[in-house]
Design a protein around this nucleic acid. Structure first.
Length: 489
RNA sequence: GGGCCCGUAGCUCAGCGGCCAGAGCAGUGGACUUUUAAUCCAUCGGUCCUCGGUUCGAAUCCGAGCGGGCCCA
Protein backbone atom coordinates (compact mmCIF):
# COMPACT_ATOMS: atom_id res chain seq x y z
CA UNK A 1 0.00 0.00 0.00
CA UNK A 2 1.85 3.10 -1.21
CA UNK A 3 -0.02 5.46 1.05
CA UNK A 4 0.65 3.51 4.21
CA UNK A 5 4.21 3.19 2.99
CA UNK A 6 4.48 6.98 2.86
CA UNK A 7 3.16 7.35 6.38
CA UNK A 8 5.74 4.87 7.61
CA UNK A 9 8.52 6.62 5.66
CA UNK A 10 7.65 9.94 7.28
CA UNK A 11 7.80 8.37 10.71
CA UNK A 12 11.11 6.62 9.90
CA UNK A 13 12.56 10.01 9.01
CA UNK A 14 11.34 11.43 12.31
CA UNK A 15 12.94 8.46 14.05
CA UNK A 16 16.26 9.29 12.36
CA UNK A 17 16.01 12.90 13.47
CA UNK A 18 15.17 11.83 17.03
CA UNK A 19 18.16 9.47 17.05
CA UNK A 20 20.40 12.44 16.41
CA UNK A 21 19.02 14.13 19.54
CA UNK A 22 18.66 11.21 21.96
CA UNK A 23 17.75 7.54 21.91
CA UNK A 24 13.99 7.40 21.26
CA UNK A 25 13.95 3.85 22.67
CA UNK A 26 15.62 4.15 26.09
CA UNK A 27 15.80 1.07 28.30
CA UNK A 28 15.03 3.00 31.49
CA UNK A 29 12.44 5.69 32.08
CA UNK A 30 11.33 7.79 35.03
CA UNK A 31 7.82 7.64 36.43
CA UNK A 32 6.61 9.10 39.70
CA UNK A 33 2.88 8.71 39.10
CA UNK A 34 0.44 6.97 36.84
CA UNK A 35 -2.03 9.24 35.06
CA UNK A 36 -4.68 8.37 37.62
CA UNK A 37 -2.31 8.96 40.53
CA UNK A 38 -1.23 12.31 39.11
CA UNK A 39 -4.86 13.46 39.05
CA UNK A 40 -5.24 12.08 42.56
CA UNK A 41 -2.27 13.90 44.11
CA UNK A 42 -3.43 17.16 42.56
CA UNK A 43 -6.81 16.83 44.27
CA UNK A 44 -5.16 15.60 47.48
CA UNK A 45 -3.03 18.74 47.52
CA UNK A 46 -6.18 20.82 47.55
CA UNK A 47 -6.43 21.35 43.82
CA UNK A 48 -3.91 24.19 43.99
CA UNK A 49 -2.17 24.96 40.70
CA UNK A 50 1.50 23.93 40.48
CA UNK A 51 1.58 22.56 44.03
CA UNK A 52 2.73 19.11 42.93
CA UNK A 53 5.25 17.95 40.38
CA UNK A 54 4.97 14.63 38.55
CA UNK A 55 6.73 12.54 35.96
CA UNK A 56 4.32 10.49 33.87
CA UNK A 57 4.73 8.14 30.94
CA UNK A 58 2.33 6.88 28.29
CA UNK A 59 1.14 6.93 24.73
CA UNK A 60 0.11 10.09 22.88
CA UNK A 61 -3.53 9.67 21.80
CA UNK A 62 -4.38 13.21 20.71
CA UNK A 63 -2.57 16.40 19.74
CA UNK A 64 -4.02 19.90 19.71
CA UNK A 65 -1.28 22.20 18.54
CA UNK A 66 -1.79 26.00 18.51
CA UNK A 67 1.40 27.52 17.26
CA UNK A 68 3.35 28.43 20.35
CA UNK A 69 1.53 26.04 22.68
CA UNK A 70 0.12 22.56 22.42
CA UNK A 71 -2.11 20.16 24.33
CA UNK A 72 -1.44 16.44 24.08
CA UNK A 73 -3.39 13.57 25.62
CA UNK A 74 -1.26 10.91 27.26
CA UNK A 75 -2.71 7.50 28.02
CA UNK A 76 -1.25 4.85 30.29
CA UNK A 77 -2.62 1.70 31.90
CA UNK A 78 -4.47 3.71 34.53
CA UNK A 79 -6.19 6.25 32.32
CA UNK A 80 -5.55 9.53 30.53
CA UNK A 81 -3.99 12.85 31.45
CA UNK A 82 -3.59 16.04 29.45
CA UNK A 83 -0.21 17.66 28.86
CA UNK A 84 0.44 21.33 28.11
CA UNK A 85 3.56 22.29 26.18
CA UNK A 86 4.60 25.98 25.85
CA UNK A 87 7.26 27.38 23.58
CA UNK A 88 8.26 30.01 26.14
CA UNK A 89 9.21 27.39 28.76
CA UNK A 90 10.51 24.59 26.53
CA UNK A 91 13.69 25.19 24.53
CA UNK A 92 13.01 21.96 22.63
CA UNK A 93 9.38 22.85 21.87
CA UNK A 94 9.91 22.59 18.12
CA UNK A 95 10.88 18.94 18.49
CA UNK A 96 7.18 18.24 19.07
CA UNK A 97 7.11 18.13 15.26
CA UNK A 98 8.78 14.74 15.61
CA UNK A 99 5.99 13.37 17.82
CA UNK A 100 3.12 11.46 16.20
CA UNK A 101 -0.02 9.93 17.59
CA UNK A 102 0.95 6.58 19.06
CA UNK A 103 4.40 7.61 20.31
CA UNK A 104 5.29 7.10 23.97
CA UNK A 105 6.55 10.06 26.00
CA UNK A 106 8.05 10.64 29.42
CA UNK A 107 7.11 14.09 30.70
CA UNK A 108 7.74 16.03 33.89
CA UNK A 109 5.99 19.13 35.13
CA UNK A 110 3.67 20.66 37.67
CA UNK A 111 -0.01 19.93 37.78
CA UNK A 112 -2.56 22.68 37.24
CA UNK A 113 -6.16 23.12 36.22
CA UNK A 114 -6.93 24.78 32.89
CA UNK A 115 -9.61 27.40 32.58
CA UNK A 116 -11.89 24.78 31.09
CA UNK A 117 -11.37 22.74 34.24
CA UNK A 118 -9.14 19.92 33.11
CA UNK A 119 -6.31 18.84 35.38
CA UNK A 120 -3.19 19.06 33.23
CA UNK A 121 0.59 18.68 33.45
CA UNK A 122 2.47 21.91 32.61
CA UNK A 123 5.41 20.25 30.94
CA UNK A 124 8.89 21.44 31.94
CA UNK A 125 10.83 18.58 30.37
CA UNK A 126 9.97 15.73 28.09
CA UNK A 127 11.41 13.10 25.81
CA UNK A 128 10.27 10.42 23.39
CA UNK A 129 10.63 6.94 24.92
CA UNK A 130 9.18 4.99 21.99
CA UNK A 131 8.72 6.19 18.43
CA UNK A 132 5.84 4.40 16.66
CA UNK A 133 6.15 3.76 12.93
CA UNK A 134 2.57 2.92 12.01
CA UNK A 135 -0.54 5.05 12.50
CA UNK A 136 -3.19 4.07 15.04
CA UNK A 137 -6.90 3.68 14.25
CA UNK A 138 -8.89 6.88 14.00
CA UNK A 139 -9.40 8.69 17.29
CA UNK A 140 -13.15 9.12 17.20
CA UNK A 141 -14.61 6.02 15.55
CA UNK A 142 -11.74 3.79 16.61
CA UNK A 143 -11.48 0.33 15.12
CA UNK A 144 -14.81 -1.29 14.31
CA UNK A 145 -13.91 -3.79 11.62
CA UNK A 146 -14.50 -7.07 13.43
CA UNK A 147 -11.93 -8.95 11.44
CA UNK A 148 -9.22 -6.40 12.10
CA UNK A 149 -10.18 -6.36 15.80
CA UNK A 150 -9.50 -10.11 16.03
CA UNK A 151 -6.45 -10.26 13.81
CA UNK A 152 -4.77 -7.21 15.35
CA UNK A 153 -6.09 -7.37 18.90
CA UNK A 154 -3.53 -4.83 20.10
CA UNK A 155 -5.25 -2.20 17.97
CA UNK A 156 -8.63 -3.28 19.31
CA UNK A 157 -7.32 -2.92 22.85
CA UNK A 158 -5.94 0.54 22.10
CA UNK A 159 -9.15 1.70 20.45
CA UNK A 160 -11.96 -0.01 22.34
CA UNK A 161 -12.57 0.29 26.06
CA UNK A 162 -14.98 -2.66 25.98
CA UNK A 163 -12.26 -4.98 24.74
CA UNK A 164 -9.99 -3.91 27.57
CA UNK A 165 -12.84 -4.44 30.00
CA UNK A 166 -13.53 -7.98 28.78
CA UNK A 167 -9.85 -8.89 28.95
CA UNK A 168 -9.60 -7.59 32.52
CA UNK A 169 -12.80 -9.40 33.47
CA UNK A 170 -11.41 -12.63 32.13
CA UNK A 171 -8.38 -12.30 34.36
CA UNK A 172 -10.61 -11.62 37.37
CA UNK A 173 -12.84 -14.59 36.55
CA UNK A 174 -9.97 -17.05 36.08
CA UNK A 175 -8.33 -15.92 39.27
CA UNK A 176 -11.66 -16.10 41.14
CA UNK A 177 -12.14 -19.69 40.01
CA UNK A 178 -8.61 -20.55 41.11
CA UNK A 179 -9.15 -18.86 44.46
CA UNK A 180 -12.43 -20.68 44.98
CA UNK A 181 -10.81 -24.09 44.62
CA UNK A 182 -7.72 -23.19 46.65
CA UNK A 183 -10.00 -21.90 49.41
CA UNK A 184 -11.71 -25.29 49.50
CA UNK A 185 -8.46 -27.18 49.89
CA UNK A 186 -8.01 -28.31 46.30
CA UNK A 187 -4.49 -28.87 44.99
CA UNK A 188 -3.73 -27.13 41.70
CA UNK A 189 -1.78 -29.40 39.35
CA UNK A 190 -0.44 -29.46 35.80
CA UNK A 191 -0.79 -32.53 33.61
CA UNK A 192 0.67 -33.30 30.16
CA UNK A 193 -0.47 -31.47 27.06
CA UNK A 194 1.37 -33.97 24.85
CA UNK A 195 -0.23 -37.35 25.26
CA UNK A 196 -0.03 -40.82 23.85
CA UNK A 197 -3.83 -41.07 23.81
CA UNK A 198 -6.08 -38.02 23.68
CA UNK A 199 -8.89 -39.20 25.94
CA UNK A 200 -11.48 -37.93 28.36
CA UNK A 201 -13.81 -36.40 25.81
CA UNK A 202 -15.40 -37.01 22.43
CA UNK A 203 -13.41 -34.92 19.97
CA UNK A 204 -10.82 -35.17 17.23
CA UNK A 205 -7.32 -34.41 18.47
CA UNK A 206 -4.43 -32.55 16.89
CA UNK A 207 -1.54 -34.81 16.05
CA UNK A 208 2.10 -33.94 16.36
CA UNK A 209 5.38 -35.79 16.22
CA UNK A 210 8.23 -36.18 18.66
CA UNK A 211 11.38 -36.40 16.56
CA UNK A 212 13.80 -37.83 19.11
CA UNK A 213 11.36 -40.52 20.16
CA UNK A 214 10.12 -40.90 16.58
CA UNK A 215 6.60 -41.17 17.91
CA UNK A 216 3.30 -39.48 17.13
CA UNK A 217 1.76 -37.65 20.04
CA UNK A 218 -1.60 -35.95 20.50
CA UNK A 219 -2.49 -32.62 22.06
CA UNK A 220 -4.88 -33.21 24.93
CA UNK A 221 -8.61 -32.78 24.41
CA UNK A 222 -9.43 -32.86 28.11
CA UNK A 223 -7.75 -33.02 31.50
CA UNK A 224 -9.76 -35.89 32.89
CA UNK A 225 -7.71 -39.05 32.66
CA UNK A 226 -4.57 -37.64 34.23
CA UNK A 227 -6.43 -35.91 37.05
CA UNK A 228 -8.06 -39.24 37.86
CA UNK A 229 -4.63 -40.87 38.03
CA UNK A 230 -3.92 -38.36 40.80
CA UNK A 231 -6.98 -39.59 42.70
CA UNK A 232 -5.48 -43.07 42.44
CA UNK A 233 -2.25 -41.56 43.75
CA UNK A 234 -3.99 -40.39 46.89
CA UNK A 235 -4.72 -36.71 46.37
CA UNK A 236 -8.33 -36.19 47.40
CA UNK A 237 -9.03 -32.81 45.82
CA UNK A 238 -7.28 -31.71 42.63
CA UNK A 239 -7.98 -29.20 39.89
CA UNK A 240 -6.34 -27.86 36.77
CA UNK A 241 -7.06 -24.84 34.59
CA UNK A 242 -5.50 -25.61 31.26
CA UNK A 243 -5.61 -25.22 27.53
CA UNK A 244 -7.09 -28.10 25.56
CA UNK A 245 -7.18 -28.56 21.80
CA UNK A 246 -9.91 -29.94 19.60
CA UNK A 247 -9.45 -30.34 15.88
CA UNK A 248 -12.78 -28.85 14.82
CA UNK A 249 -14.07 -25.92 12.81
CA UNK A 250 -13.64 -22.29 13.78
CA UNK A 251 -16.63 -20.04 14.41
CA UNK A 252 -18.05 -17.69 16.98
CA UNK A 253 -18.89 -20.81 19.02
CA UNK A 254 -15.73 -22.85 18.62
CA UNK A 255 -12.04 -22.15 18.84
CA UNK A 256 -9.57 -25.00 18.29
CA UNK A 257 -7.88 -24.22 21.57
CA UNK A 258 -9.78 -23.20 24.66
CA UNK A 259 -9.36 -23.15 28.40
CA UNK A 260 -10.88 -25.87 30.52
CA UNK A 261 -11.24 -26.17 34.26
CA UNK A 262 -11.54 -29.64 35.69
CA UNK A 263 -11.79 -30.62 39.35
CA UNK A 264 -12.02 -33.99 41.10
CA UNK A 265 -13.02 -34.53 44.68
CA UNK A 266 -12.76 -37.95 46.29
CA UNK A 267 -15.70 -39.16 48.38
CA UNK A 268 -18.05 -36.64 46.77
CA UNK A 269 -20.87 -37.45 44.32
CA UNK A 270 -22.45 -35.40 41.59
CA UNK A 271 -24.95 -33.81 43.92
CA UNK A 272 -22.08 -32.49 46.03
CA UNK A 273 -20.51 -31.16 42.84
CA UNK A 274 -23.76 -29.43 41.82
CA UNK A 275 -23.90 -27.66 45.17
CA UNK A 276 -20.28 -26.61 44.72
CA UNK A 277 -20.96 -25.28 41.20
CA UNK A 278 -23.80 -23.10 42.53
CA UNK A 279 -21.41 -21.63 45.06
CA UNK A 280 -18.64 -21.25 42.49
CA UNK A 281 -20.75 -19.30 39.99
CA UNK A 282 -22.10 -17.07 42.73
CA UNK A 283 -18.56 -16.40 43.94
CA UNK A 284 -17.28 -15.62 40.45
CA UNK A 285 -20.21 -13.32 39.70
CA UNK A 286 -19.62 -11.38 42.90
CA UNK A 287 -15.90 -11.07 42.14
CA UNK A 288 -16.64 -9.80 38.63
CA UNK A 289 -19.81 -7.75 39.14
CA UNK A 290 -20.19 -7.40 42.90
CA UNK A 291 -23.53 -9.23 42.71
CA UNK A 292 -25.15 -12.48 41.58
CA UNK A 293 -27.94 -10.59 39.82
CA UNK A 294 -27.03 -8.75 36.64
CA UNK A 295 -28.29 -8.24 33.14
CA UNK A 296 -27.02 -8.48 29.60
CA UNK A 297 -29.21 -6.21 27.52
CA UNK A 298 -32.77 -7.42 27.97
CA UNK A 299 -31.79 -10.62 29.76
CA UNK A 300 -31.90 -10.55 33.54
CA UNK A 301 -29.59 -13.24 34.84
CA UNK A 302 -29.46 -14.63 38.36
CA UNK A 303 -26.52 -16.75 39.45
CA UNK A 304 -27.93 -16.98 42.96
CA UNK A 305 -28.28 -20.51 44.36
CA UNK A 306 -30.22 -22.68 44.09
CA UNK A 307 -30.38 -23.13 40.31
CA UNK A 308 -33.27 -24.81 38.52
CA UNK A 309 -32.99 -28.60 38.35
CA UNK A 310 -34.47 -31.03 35.87
CA UNK A 311 -33.54 -34.36 34.28
CA UNK A 312 -32.37 -35.19 30.78
CA UNK A 313 -35.39 -37.37 30.19
CA UNK A 314 -37.77 -34.84 31.73
CA UNK A 315 -36.34 -31.84 29.90
CA UNK A 316 -36.55 -33.50 26.49
CA UNK A 317 -40.06 -34.73 27.23
CA UNK A 318 -41.15 -31.29 28.40
CA UNK A 319 -39.78 -29.36 25.42
CA UNK A 320 -40.48 -31.85 22.62
CA UNK A 321 -42.90 -34.45 23.93
CA UNK A 322 -40.35 -37.09 23.03
CA UNK A 323 -39.86 -39.96 25.46
CA UNK A 324 -36.53 -41.23 24.20
CA UNK A 325 -36.84 -44.51 26.10
CA UNK A 326 -39.50 -45.50 23.59
CA UNK A 327 -36.92 -45.32 20.80
CA UNK A 328 -34.13 -47.64 21.90
CA UNK A 329 -32.78 -48.28 18.42
CA UNK A 330 -30.79 -45.94 16.19
CA UNK A 331 -33.28 -46.39 13.36
CA UNK A 332 -36.30 -45.48 15.51
CA UNK A 333 -34.58 -42.40 16.93
CA UNK A 334 -33.37 -41.34 13.50
CA UNK A 335 -36.99 -41.40 12.33
CA UNK A 336 -38.00 -39.16 15.24
CA UNK A 337 -35.23 -36.69 14.38
CA UNK A 338 -36.25 -36.71 10.73
CA UNK A 339 -39.88 -36.00 11.65
CA UNK A 340 -38.69 -32.94 13.61
CA UNK A 341 -36.45 -31.72 10.76
CA UNK A 342 -33.26 -32.26 12.72
CA UNK A 343 -30.50 -33.13 10.26
CA UNK A 344 -28.64 -36.30 11.17
CA UNK A 345 -25.47 -37.57 9.51
CA UNK A 346 -25.62 -41.03 7.95
CA UNK A 347 -23.23 -42.68 10.37
CA UNK A 348 -24.64 -40.97 13.47
CA UNK A 349 -25.02 -43.12 16.56
CA UNK A 350 -28.09 -43.31 18.79
CA UNK A 351 -26.32 -41.11 21.32
CA UNK A 352 -25.35 -38.52 18.70
CA UNK A 353 -28.93 -38.25 17.46
CA UNK A 354 -30.27 -37.87 20.97
CA UNK A 355 -27.71 -35.16 21.64
CA UNK A 356 -28.79 -33.37 18.45
CA UNK A 357 -32.38 -33.33 19.69
CA UNK A 358 -31.30 -31.89 23.02
CA UNK A 359 -29.12 -29.19 21.51
CA UNK A 360 -31.81 -28.23 19.04
CA UNK A 361 -34.91 -28.13 21.21
CA UNK A 362 -33.87 -27.88 24.84
CA UNK A 363 -30.53 -26.19 25.32
CA UNK A 364 -31.35 -22.87 23.60
CA UNK A 365 -34.32 -22.45 25.96
CA UNK A 366 -32.23 -22.68 29.11
CA UNK A 367 -31.45 -19.03 29.77
CA UNK A 368 -31.34 -19.00 33.55
CA UNK A 369 -28.82 -21.43 35.02
CA UNK A 370 -30.38 -24.89 34.90
CA UNK A 371 -28.98 -28.25 35.93
CA UNK A 372 -29.87 -31.21 33.76
CA UNK A 373 -29.33 -34.43 35.69
CA UNK A 374 -29.07 -38.09 34.74
CA UNK A 375 -27.75 -38.58 31.23
CA UNK A 376 -28.09 -41.69 29.07
CA UNK A 377 -25.20 -44.07 29.63
CA UNK A 378 -24.43 -44.15 25.93
CA UNK A 379 -23.47 -40.45 26.04
CA UNK A 380 -21.23 -40.75 29.06
CA UNK A 381 -18.53 -43.42 28.99
CA UNK A 382 -16.74 -42.07 32.07
CA UNK A 383 -19.67 -41.63 34.47
CA UNK A 384 -21.02 -44.02 37.07
CA UNK A 385 -24.32 -45.75 36.37
CA UNK A 386 -27.34 -45.09 38.56
CA UNK A 387 -27.89 -47.83 41.13
CA UNK A 388 -31.36 -48.67 39.87
CA UNK A 389 -30.94 -47.92 36.16
CA UNK A 390 -28.24 -49.35 33.89
CA UNK A 391 -29.11 -46.98 31.05
CA UNK A 392 -28.66 -43.80 33.03
CA UNK A 393 -25.56 -42.33 34.63
CA UNK A 394 -24.97 -39.94 37.51
CA UNK A 395 -24.10 -36.95 35.41
CA UNK A 396 -25.30 -33.37 35.12
CA UNK A 397 -24.68 -30.50 32.81
CA UNK A 398 -25.33 -26.89 33.70
CA UNK A 399 -26.78 -24.61 31.02
CA UNK A 400 -27.23 -20.85 30.95
CA UNK A 401 -27.89 -18.34 28.16
CA UNK A 402 -28.63 -21.39 25.99
CA UNK A 403 -25.26 -23.04 26.11
CA UNK A 404 -23.36 -25.52 28.24
CA UNK A 405 -21.36 -24.13 31.12
CA UNK A 406 -20.46 -27.18 33.20
CA UNK A 407 -20.38 -30.96 32.97
CA UNK A 408 -20.02 -33.25 35.99
CA UNK A 409 -20.20 -36.91 36.98
CA UNK A 410 -20.08 -39.26 39.83
CA UNK A 411 -16.93 -40.71 38.34
CA UNK A 412 -16.88 -44.26 37.14
CA UNK A 413 -14.38 -46.13 39.29
CA UNK A 414 -15.29 -49.76 38.61
CA UNK A 415 -12.32 -50.78 36.47
CA UNK A 416 -14.19 -53.65 34.86
CA UNK A 417 -17.13 -51.47 33.82
CA UNK A 418 -14.70 -48.75 32.69
CA UNK A 419 -12.74 -51.21 30.57
CA UNK A 420 -15.91 -52.51 28.92
CA UNK A 421 -17.18 -49.03 28.09
CA UNK A 422 -13.83 -47.83 26.79
CA UNK A 423 -13.53 -50.88 24.61
CA UNK A 424 -17.04 -50.28 23.28
CA UNK A 425 -16.03 -46.71 22.40
CA UNK A 426 -12.86 -48.01 20.84
CA UNK A 427 -14.89 -50.32 18.65
CA UNK A 428 -16.97 -47.36 17.49
CA UNK A 429 -13.80 -45.57 16.52
CA UNK A 430 -12.69 -48.57 14.53
CA UNK A 431 -16.05 -48.36 12.79
CA UNK A 432 -15.21 -44.82 11.76
CA UNK A 433 -16.58 -42.58 14.51
CA UNK A 434 -13.61 -40.22 14.77
CA UNK A 435 -14.95 -38.59 17.90
CA UNK A 436 -15.34 -41.76 19.94
CA UNK A 437 -13.13 -42.26 22.97
CA UNK A 438 -9.94 -44.22 22.56
CA UNK A 439 -9.04 -46.91 25.09
CA UNK A 440 -6.21 -45.69 27.28
CA UNK A 441 -4.61 -48.84 28.68
CA UNK A 442 -2.34 -46.93 31.01
CA UNK A 443 -5.36 -45.20 32.53
CA UNK A 444 -7.22 -48.49 32.87
CA UNK A 445 -4.23 -50.01 34.68
CA UNK A 446 -4.18 -46.98 36.98
CA UNK A 447 -7.79 -47.33 38.09
CA UNK A 448 -7.39 -51.08 38.44
CA UNK A 449 -5.20 -50.13 41.41
CA UNK A 450 -8.28 -48.48 42.90
CA UNK A 451 -9.69 -44.99 42.36
CA UNK A 452 -11.85 -43.76 45.24
CA UNK A 453 -15.45 -42.72 44.58
CA UNK A 454 -15.28 -39.13 43.37
CA UNK A 455 -17.22 -36.23 41.93
CA UNK A 456 -15.65 -34.63 38.85
CA UNK A 457 -16.38 -31.33 37.14
CA UNK A 458 -15.48 -29.61 33.87
CA UNK A 459 -16.16 -25.96 33.06
CA UNK A 460 -15.29 -24.21 29.81
CA UNK A 461 -13.61 -21.05 31.05
CA UNK A 462 -14.23 -19.15 27.82
CA UNK A 463 -17.93 -19.93 28.06
CA UNK A 464 -17.89 -18.86 31.68
CA UNK A 465 -16.40 -15.50 30.72
CA UNK A 466 -19.08 -15.16 28.03
CA UNK A 467 -21.76 -15.89 30.60
CA UNK A 468 -20.44 -13.38 33.12
CA UNK A 469 -19.73 -10.67 30.53
CA UNK A 470 -22.69 -11.31 28.21
CA UNK A 471 -20.54 -11.68 25.13
CA UNK A 472 -22.19 -13.46 22.24
CA UNK A 473 -19.06 -14.62 20.47
CA UNK A 474 -16.25 -16.75 21.87
CA UNK A 475 -13.92 -14.59 19.83
CA UNK A 476 -14.72 -11.65 22.07
CA UNK A 477 -13.42 -13.42 25.17
CA UNK A 478 -10.35 -15.03 23.58
CA UNK A 479 -7.68 -12.38 23.03
CA UNK A 480 -6.17 -14.06 19.99
CA UNK A 481 -8.78 -16.30 18.37
CA UNK A 482 -7.75 -18.69 15.62
CA UNK A 483 -8.53 -17.16 12.21
CA UNK A 484 -8.41 -18.51 8.69
CA UNK A 485 -5.54 -17.54 6.41
CA UNK A 486 -6.34 -14.40 4.56
CA UNK A 487 -4.55 -15.83 1.56
CA UNK A 488 -2.83 -12.58 0.55
CA UNK A 489 0.48 -11.02 1.64
C1' G B 1 -25.47 -27.75 6.04
C1' G B 2 -28.91 -23.49 4.34
C1' G B 3 -30.04 -18.18 4.02
C1' C B 4 -28.81 -12.93 4.39
C1' C B 5 -25.20 -8.92 4.69
C1' C B 6 -20.25 -6.78 4.26
C1' G B 7 -15.07 -6.13 1.82
C1' U B 8 -13.45 1.37 -1.56
C1' A B 9 -7.21 5.84 1.31
C1' G B 10 -3.60 4.02 7.60
C1' C B 11 -8.84 4.40 10.30
C1' U B 12 -14.41 5.56 9.92
C1' C B 13 -17.50 5.75 5.78
C1' A B 14 -20.11 7.75 1.04
C1' G B 15 -20.47 6.62 -4.11
C1' C B 16 -24.30 1.45 -6.73
C1' G B 17 -23.51 1.55 -15.16
C1' G B 18 -21.17 7.40 -17.71
C1' C B 19 -16.03 13.18 -17.16
C1' C B 20 -10.19 12.17 -13.80
C1' A B 21 -13.51 7.57 -7.35
C1' G B 22 -15.07 11.29 -2.79
C1' A B 23 -15.61 13.10 2.59
C1' G B 24 -14.04 13.24 7.79
C1' C B 25 -9.95 11.81 10.87
C1' A B 26 -4.67 10.80 10.53
C1' G B 27 -0.29 12.77 7.43
C1' U B 28 2.29 17.17 4.96
C1' G B 29 2.75 22.87 4.53
C1' G B 30 0.84 27.50 6.66
C1' A B 31 -1.98 30.68 10.67
C1' C B 32 -2.95 30.34 15.86
C1' U B 33 0.07 30.67 23.70
C1' U B 34 -5.85 27.47 27.98
C1' U B 35 -7.37 23.45 23.77
C1' U B 36 -10.09 18.94 24.43
C1' A B 37 -13.65 15.18 18.11
C1' A B 38 -9.56 22.47 18.86
C1' U B 39 -10.39 25.87 14.65
C1' C B 40 -9.17 28.06 9.71
C1' C B 41 -6.51 27.74 4.70
C1' A B 42 -3.89 24.63 1.33
C1' U B 43 -2.24 19.78 0.09
C1' C B 44 -0.49 14.47 -0.33
C1' G B 45 -2.62 9.67 -0.33
C1' G B 46 -6.33 4.24 -4.12
C1' U B 47 -4.63 -3.53 -6.45
C1' C B 48 -12.44 0.03 -5.24
C1' C B 49 -10.72 -8.19 -1.79
C1' U B 50 -9.21 -11.73 -6.15
C1' C B 51 -10.20 -14.00 -10.86
C1' G B 52 -13.44 -14.32 -14.92
C1' G B 53 -17.80 -12.57 -17.69
C1' U B 54 -21.61 -8.89 -19.69
C1' U B 55 -21.07 -3.88 -21.84
C1' C B 56 -18.99 1.28 -26.20
C1' G B 57 -17.96 1.92 -20.86
C1' A B 58 -17.74 -1.81 -14.42
C1' A B 59 -16.01 0.24 -7.73
C1' U B 60 -21.17 -0.24 -9.52
C1' C B 61 -24.38 -5.68 -13.10
C1' C B 62 -23.50 -11.35 -13.39
C1' G B 63 -20.53 -15.88 -11.96
C1' A B 64 -16.78 -18.27 -9.14
C1' G B 65 -13.35 -17.88 -5.23
C1' C B 66 -11.09 -15.76 -0.59
C1' G B 67 -11.91 -13.33 4.13
C1' G B 68 -15.37 -11.51 7.89
C1' G B 69 -20.18 -10.86 10.29
C1' C B 70 -25.29 -12.12 11.33
C1' C B 71 -29.45 -15.48 11.26
C1' C B 72 -31.79 -20.45 10.84
C1' A B 73 -32.45 -25.89 11.63
Amino acid sequence: MPSEHELIQQRLEKRERLLRLADPYPARVQRTHTALEALGVFEAAGGVDNAVTVTVVGRVTAQRVMGKAAFLDLRDGSGRIQLHFRRDVLPDYDNLDLVDLGDFLEVSGSVFRTRTGEVTVAVTSWRVITKALRPLPEKWHGLTDTEARYRQRYLDLIANERSREVARARSIIVSAVRQFFLNRGFLEVETPVLQEHAGGAAARPFTTHHNALDRDLFLRISLELHLKRLLVGGFEKVFEIGRVFRNEGVSYRHNPEFTLLESYEAYADYHDVAAMVEELLGFVAVQAHGTTEFHHGEVELSLKAPFARTTYHGALLEHTGIDYRQYPTTEALREVARSRNVPVADGASWATILDALMSTFVEPKLIQPTFIFDYPTALSPLAKKKVDDEDTVERFELFALGYEIANAYSELNDPVDQRERMEAQSAKQTEGDEEAEVADEDFLVAIEHGMPPAGGLGIGMDRLVQLIMGEHSLREVILFPTMRDRGDE
